[in-house]
Design a protein around this nucleic acid. Structure first.
Lengths: 125, 125
DNA sequence: TACAAATATAACGTTAACGTCATGTTTAGA
DNA sequence: TCTAAACATGACGTTAACGTTATATTTGTA
């Protein structure tokens, strides 16, 4: 498929795809000579994974550090120890964020309850 | 205290404090005429709360929408319904992020285990 | 009172992650 | 074959959240 279809299926703009290619996050689509680029299903999957990681708060640079894990078999990767370090770092951070989110959520709930109580009292007086 | 101490205690730069003042996230410190600004403990607490919310992924603009909740009593706030809406929005988002983080974490753990297994097998052969 | 250290203010710079033209080239279809 | 739609490439623009000078005041202290 070409860039227009890919963009639509992935829910991003063509500019985004080209930008990802320019920073090495995505391999440029195949092409013959100087014509258009053609992409496969795998690029689409990769774009979706990128989006998922983005929603988790990873920067494009961080995504670049782990994205290949999702598309290569373990025995093929070279600097394995380094990859392990990166994974553990992200794991720790994910757990920290979750803890803080828990705390934040209960604070929010407290505030909401306080407000609702106040509104009710004001209403029935 | 003056801006230097405040910055150090809060773990931010003076520039950050002035920037927050400029966008209305922080009230400028008191001063007589055209001299230096003086700050109180409350500004420090506010800076710390801002930092906490930032680490949760809220933008400064979003923080500006809820920060006053932490420093005003419920009966004093005017557009109460609107505040409730904002709180609920952030609560929903927090829960979504948590769900995705859970998923991400278990994926990470799977990958880590795969790598460790692979490394061990390579070691004992 | 003199002066170094801390502040105030203004203005230009920086990074990430694209958006938005502008212009030229390819490709599919009538 | 001709042409409109899609694509390629380049370059400048944008927003958030400050960083970094530069210059002018203000303050605490010897």
């Amino acid at each position: 498929m070409r860039i227009g279809d890919l963009a639509e299926l992935a829910g991003v703009t063509q500019r985004t795809i080209r930008y990802y290619e320019s920073i090495g996050l995505l391999a440029p689509g195949q092409r013959e000579g100087h014509g258009h680029h053609y992409y496969t299903e795998e690029t689409l999957l990769r774009l979706r994974k990128i989006d998922q990681l983005k929603r988790l708060g990873l920067s494009l640079e961080e995504i670049g550090e782990v994205i290949d894990l999702y598309f290569t078999d373990p025995s093929g990767i070279q600097p394995k120890q380094k990859v392990l370090v990166i994974l553990r770092k992200h794991l720790d951070e994910a757990e920290r964020k979750m803890d803080e989110l828990q705390q934040f959520r209960s604070e929010l709930q407290t505030h909401i309850e306080r407000f609702e109580k106040f509104l009710n009292e004001a209403q029935y007086r």
